[in-house]
Design a protein around this nucleic acid. Structure first.
Lengths: 243, 243
DNA sequence: AACAAAAATCTGTCTTGACAACTTTACAGA
DNA sequence: TCTGTAAAGTTGTCAAGACAGATTTTTGTT
């Protein structure tokens, strides 16, 4: 039973109680937990209070809900080395994970205005979007901008299944000399949320990465939206990492 | 006014409306927005629905609430280069940010059991915890484990204000040869939440980092809990990064 | 003008209740 | 035994209301 006299709110006590039960293995991944009305009756609290507790566990990645069906325990995320791999597709396969990456839409070329808040502002860029799925669940969305001057004719290439970093190295003889990436926690809406199949309540790791080349500073900019609820994303340190 | 006929729920419409107003500068950082009862009256919806909308904006880092006082627009986070710096303290100062790091408790030495799920399992380690604040707000909590064999006598040194990476290089002649770090979104409870002054609803970037040395594989393990709502944490790529 | 107390207002927690949208289960008929 | 429909049960959204804890504003007194 919950303790109404406790300084810890009831919804919080329930969330901790359920989280402990999940971590202790009382509910297996994929298993349905008792319904909201059932939990309300069992713990003697209102359904909105139960929902508040479950809301927190959903956000923490322990539970997922399906309207009309119930609330289920989630699988633990697998780990993928992302921030140090030579092309997402190739390294996904190397790590024995069934991943599929594919382009969304066409590669387009356009000019970024001078005043635009973008590291490649003032230049012509190739823009492309790529989505990676694991077992048909989206896990990574990449939005890429490449300096058109560094990658001439890129829009005429068949990029399906291609490693961009391999392409950069082998076709354009480009190896990054340095760069910078920043890490953010984001909540997606609109098209990005739809592509990753998440609600605006789901915390997403967004990594903004800018690569420099000996031939041109700030030649490649990318935004990576990572579903850390699906995968653990890691980076190998030592030696240079690039996209 | 909100549109009750819209497929978008009312709380979601309000959240989007308020987010747009904040981003458009209608409310300046630090400014108080209309109270919950006031918003309920203005938009003709219930206070629980207003709270649901505000909950989402608080989680997204746009708003913060103070009981009895009101709901305020938050400052945008500043950027700090963390995952490529030679010791947090030194690089904070180099980047002109008023940061203070200090040890929580003493350096302790103990042995990790062989079967323990820890990269340094089976060894004696020095364990220490460090908290970094900016303008008296905690932004980074580090929990560090160092192989005691690589860092003899570490517990007898005065580590206050010290760069650990400089210490490793200059006193112990240790430079990392490689490593790995993984990125997680976490929700803290208990002591960690108290130290970072966050609620269990706040999404935290947790980075687990393991460094290898020529002298010893897996010599240094650290967990970094980053308040991305306070700072943008970034990494410089190229050349080797180490703690 | 300054200070203390009371009142008002704010957010935080919780309840009961209702209805919508969706899924699952039970039942009737072929 | 199979299929279709109704009933039951689930989550999602929303409302009104109450009270607690904290802060701010107003009022009264000196």
């Amino acid at each position: 039973m919950l303790d109404p006299q406790s300084p810890t709110p009831l919804y919080h006590q329930l969330a901790e109680r359920l989280a402990a039960a999940i971590r202790a293995g009382e509910f297996a991944p994929g298993e349905r937990i008792p319904s909201e009305p059932r939990l309300a009756a069992e713990y003697g609290i209102g359904r909105p209070t139960v929902r508040q507790a479950l809301d927190a566990l959903v956000r923490q990645g322990l539970l997922s809900r399906r309207r009309g069906s119930g609330t289920y325990v989630r699988e633990a995320p697998k780990e993928i080395d992302l921030f140090s791999l030579d092309g997402t597709g190739a390294s996904f396969r190397k790590q024995g994970l069934a991943m599929e990456s594919h382009l969304l839409g066409e590669v387009t070329r356009h000019r970024l205005a001078d005043g635009e808040r973008h590291p490649l502002a003032g230049r012509d860029v190739f823009t492309l979007t790529r989505l990676t799925r694991s077992e048909s669940t989206p896990v990574l969305l990449e939005e890429l901008d490449l300096d058109a001057g560094l990658f001439p004719g890129l829009d005429r290439l068949d990029l399906a299944g291609q490693s961009l970093s391999a392409l950069a190295a082998e076709r354009y003889f480009l190896r990054p000399s340095g760069g910078r990436q920043s890490f953010h926690i984001d909540y997606l809406t609109g098209e990005r949320a739809a592509r990753l199949e998440v609600s605006s309540e789901t915390a997403i790791l967004r990594v903004e990465r800018l690569l420099h080349f000996p031939q041109r500073e700030a030649g490649f900019f990318s935004r990576l939206y990572c579903r850390t609820d699906q995968f653990v994303f890691s980076q190998t340190l030592g030696g240079f990492e690039h996209a």
